[in-house]
Amino acid sequence: MNPAVLWLPQGTVYGALLNFRREFDLWAPKMSDAPYKAPPKAPVLYIKTANTFAPSGAAVAVPGEVEVGATLGLVIGDDLSQGQLSVALLNDLSLPHASYYRPPLRFRNRDGFLVCGPATRPISEVGDLAALALEVRINDVLVQRVEISTLVRSARTLLADVNEFMTLQPGDVLTLGTDCLEDGARPRARAGDRIEITAPGFAPLNHTLIAEEA
């Protein structure tokens, strides 16, 4: 890959909800409530539409505070049976909202709300994904560590479970989900802030936030 060309998804991006143990456990007491009345048996997914894609280094316009969602994306290759799978750093931004069962598009799918790391890495070069920890810094201050070992469904399990009911195409991306802090919230940022997401072996994902025009 030409390092001067920043990576962006070439297919559909699907995000997974409730795929980190801390958040799943916080929500577990409510999972027996209506309308579902039971924990989810299959992965709960949402879509990040193409208007959300932004390259590393972008200035993303926001209307106020946003939640920072550091995650990894599995990038589908031409032949999964031959291990053609890559991994990318992502920042899955969202406006703060209360419910994760049916996240409205207007919260997650604003322009530029999926900031992508500058390049992907073949999964064969990454090694054990579960050993990775993502670090999130806002204005150079460490605000979160995302431990991939705490996934409810590991990367391979999530991919297999999704493939049971839908076929991912080459270029599609399946994100592993975003983690919360101990209190159930996510790190928040606002216009003027600088965000950096790092993981061992990956080029850093950096971007800024700017105020939306009135």
Rank of each mutant, 00 (worst) to 15 (best):
A199G: 07
S86H: 11
W27V: 08
T178R: 10
A131F: 07
G57Q: 11
R108V: 11
S86D: 12
A98V: 09
L17S: 05
R188T: 13
L134W: 00
P3I: 08
A119N: 10
R110L: 11
G177E: 06
A50H: 09
F20Y: 15
D111K: 15
P39Q: 08
V136L: 12
L209E: 08
P40K: 02
V146S: 05
L174K: 05
T120G: 05
T198G: 01
P29M: 15
P170N: 06
L205W: 10
R106V: 11
E182T: 02
Q10K: 14
G117D: 05
L89A: 04
Q84C: 00
G73S: 06
L93D: 09
G171L: 01
A16Q: 13
I148Y: 02
R22A: 14
L85G: 01
H207P: 00
A34V: 02
K30M: 14
E213W: 09
C116R: 09
L134S: 09
C180L: 02
P63S: 02
L181F: 03
A130R: 15
I210C: 06
A42Y: 06
V60E: 13
M166R: 11
V13S: 06
D172C: 03
A203D: 11
D78L: 01
F24Q: 06
L74W: 02
T198I: 04
G112F: 10
A199Q: 04
K37T: 11
P63D: 00
